[in-house]
Design a protein around this nucleic acid. Structure first.
Lengths: 117, 117
DNA sequence: ACCATATATATGTTTTACCATATATTTATA
DNA sequence: TATAAATATATGGTAAAACATATATATGGT
């Protein structure tokens, strides 16, 4: 999956898209409702930005029943994957990424999660 | 030099700024006139984008006589340096970066260069 | 005065956010 | 099993904001 630097950085240049990507990088695939909860933003807004990420080849989506799961495109060129990983590791304890992770983990009734402790 | 991911990726999201940065990453410090020549763009346009890169902390400038030299900020956080290096190595043989390098090397009377072959 | 560089202003273009609405899937009920 | 309602997600239209470019002008060094 060839991606040119401009496309990549344009996708990363929006805070909402970056927060979504960082969560996927750190947590693996996430459904739209989890991203809505973690970021605390409106559904159309999240959906819009996910569509931009999908159209630029950075993420792929998978429908499972009523839910749609998004994850980092496994076919991305290695240098692009490296950039996502480097960014995630260096910033996951900073705002707003740390807060997003925390809010995600506190989400009740996450789809796909086991029902009992 | 602390830089947040959003500031970094916003700076990288413009093709002109990215081309300037890639040249600096690969060649070390360059003066404004060299960047103008390599990219083939107007002086005010280059100057304006360099100002954006300077204001966001990615590059530093140094005046030497009539010329002003720009280079990657040596005090950048390591993860940001890594991203620049990764991007440069993975894309320096692609357009438009390869052409820019070539045009730069073909520039006559580069300031600071030795006068004879 | 001349050269290299920087900045200001005006204008055109792109991005973004918001609201409403549409589609798809599941659940509930007759 | 047909129908209706609820949930999850996507998209269209539009107005505001951010960004990029071009031209003109200013600054700073020789």
């Amino acid at each position: 999956m060839k991606i040119d630097p401009n496309t990549l950085f344009l996708a990363l240049s929006n805070e909402i898209r970056l927060r979504c990507l960082m969560l996927m990088q750190l947590e693996g695939e996430l459904c739209v409702c989890e991203l809505i909860h973690a970021l605390g933003l409106s559904q159309p807004m999240i959906s819009r930005h996910l569509a931009i990420l999908r159209d630029s080849g950075l993420v792929t989506d998978r429908r499972a029943g009523q839910w749609v799961y998004y994850s980092i495109n496994i076919g991305l060129e290695q240098w692009a994957k490296d950039i996502l990983q480097t960014t995630a590791l260096a910033n996951c304890e900073q705002k707003p990424f740390a807060d997003d992770l925390h809010t995600l983990h506190d989400m009740p009734n996450r789809p796909g999660a086991s029902c009992c402790a």
